[in-house]
């Protein structure tokens, strides 16, 4: 599970991008973060994976605290965290299966993987990850030939090949058509429930959040405004996240 405690990021110019953020996502739970542009929701994810360095606070993944780790220790602790983003970011010239298997590279530092190969058992595992996202039959195809929705599912399979406990998703459906978007959301929800993953997903679509989330977290100006199950959260409150931002 993922636990964020009093996480803050202050940029050198004094702007507070993230302020005392508290958040817990349990294993098997699907949490969705909503907020306007520049509200700090992507910053939150980037501070968790440490592509940005928070200035204060703690990030716990299972029993490990990430913010104070550096170098190899950080890298090893981060294996528990998988990230998918708006774009699938696949290597287009390689096969779908190879793309999925690259998710396992962090566990295998060997001459074979250095030379572009994979351990046999990871290819078998990658094939079953592809099955998880429903694309087992496409494993031999080149990644460049996939549709946007398929590519995003392959990138989720790659994240699964990493065998994470926590799955972070940064606007995973932003460049997909509505049907493909629903499919990705269903998949993420299923992975949370069946795979017992803690899934934290940043989103722009309020309707999708209501349909799929166990909890909706509202962010504005780097602060958590609400954190409720959809059933207990009036739409009016959510909409308020996006209005009179200029004031």
């Amino acid at each position: 599970m993922l636990r964020v405690r009093r996480l803050s990021l202050r940029y050198p110019n004094g702007k507070l991008a993230l302020a005392d953020f508290d958040l817990t996502v349990r294993a098997g739970e699907f949490a969705i973060v909503l907020g306007g542009n520049g509200s700090g929701k992507t910053t939150l994810l980037r501070c968790i994976v440490r592509t940005l360095n928070p200035t204060a606070g703690e990030v716990w993944v299972s029993e490990t605290e990430l913010t104070r780790l550096e170098g190899d220790k950080l890298r090893r602790a981060r294996l528990e965290l998988a990230m998918i983003s708006q774009h699938a970011s696949l290597v287009k010239r390689r096969s779908v299966l190879a793309n999925v298997a690259t998710g396992s590279l962090g566990r295998h530092y060997s001459l074979r993987t250095d030379l572009g190969g994979f351990p046999q058992e990871e290819l078998v595992a990658a094939q079953s990850c592809l099955g998880e996202v429903g694309l087992a039959e496409l494993s031999g195809q080149r990644a460049g030939t996939l549709s946007g929705g398929q590519a995003q599912r392959v990138s989720i399979a790659r994240a699964l090949a990493q065998r994470p406990r926590v799955l972070l998703a940064d606007e995973p459906v932003a460049s997909l058509d509505p049907e493909a978007a629903e499919e990705i959301m269903r998949l993420l929800r299923r992975l949370a429930v069946e795979g017992n993953l803690a899934v934290l997903c940043v989103l722009h679509q309020i309707d999708l959040a209501y349909s799929y989330a166990d909890r909706i977290v509202g962010v504005r100006d780097g602060r958590k405004i609400f954190d409720e199950p959809p059933a207990e959260l009036p739409r009016e409150v959510v909409r308020h996240l996006y209005v009179d931002r200029a004031a």
Partner: peptide, 28 residues
């Protein structure tokens, strides 16, 4: 396209692996 490179870095792949698994297949 640098996106696959960044994605691999986040999965914990080391520099040589990023080079052989993402950069070489893209450029070769």
């Amino acid at each position: 396209d640098m996106a696959p490179v960044d994605a691999l870095r986040l999965t914990g792949a080391r520099h040589v692996q990023i080079f052989t698994h993402a950069i070489v297949p893209t450029l070769l």
